[in-house]
Design a protein around this nucleic acid. Structure first.
Lengths: 110, 110
DNA sequence: AATCAATACATAAGTGAATTATGTATAAAG
DNA sequence: CTTTATACATAATTCACTTATGTATTGATT
């Protein structure tokens, strides 16, 4: 894992984009997917993830369906149309940020 | 300016790299240089910059020389050998972070 | 059968890097 | 002569995160 400071402010973007790419997912599944995609570098903590999901739901960006597997409860999240717009915004925001940082740090990102 | 959340954790990296590229600089000059390089997108605030500079100095990453221009005092900062190592570390840390985010968000950064 | 690790959710307490606010003072511009 | 820019500094506050804690089911290990 790299300096976790850099991760600040990226959580919403990550959650939204992963949900866009993989469709309907539950919380724990998101942590595992991100862990996998990041090659163990990004380990979302529950204390950050669940409140973030609740907030996005409250804002109408995500909708939920609860499913019971055996005796275990799973809460599936998916994007609302509004959420779909937000993903685009957040991702292009991030790309713009990278571009800007590339200029400031004078590094060519790839 | 884009979502300022993303900027968190990048301040040290920015300051160190700008100092590496431009040599001896004073605080206010750093804010102006970063503003210019970022095309007005990154406006370092004094409340963040000065404490960061003091901290890096206390850690032996920067050394200072005070100069008096007229009646105005300027405090010039430059990298120590240790600081030079830290820049490399921070910049490659950042590049690694970008790469990782590219994978997670499934976007090709340029 | 018992214990540990993984799965799955949730929330409260604490941290720390930032923002915002405030203060001092000189120089230049209008 | 008053506003804007230059130049430093620090204290108070904020808020997204980490850390800690809690509950409960499932699967693997001894």
């Amino acid at each position: 894992m790299h300096s976790p400071e850099l991760l600040k402010g990226t959580l919403q973007t990550i959650v939204l984009k992963v949900l866009k790419d993989h469709g309907r997912m539950y919380g724990y599944e998101i942590t595992q997917r991100v862990k996998e995609l990041s090659d163990e570098r990004i380990m979302l903590t529950e204390g950050a993830l669940y409140p973030a999901l609740h907030k996005l739901e409250a804002e109408g960006m995500l909708k939920t369906e609860t499913e019971t597997i055996g005796k275990r409860v799973r809460k599936y999240y998916s994007l609302t149309p509004q959420g779909r717009n937000l993903v685009k915004e957040r991702v292009s925001e991030f790309i713009d940020f990278i571009q800007t940082m590339g200029n400031v740090l004078q590094v060519s990102l790839r």
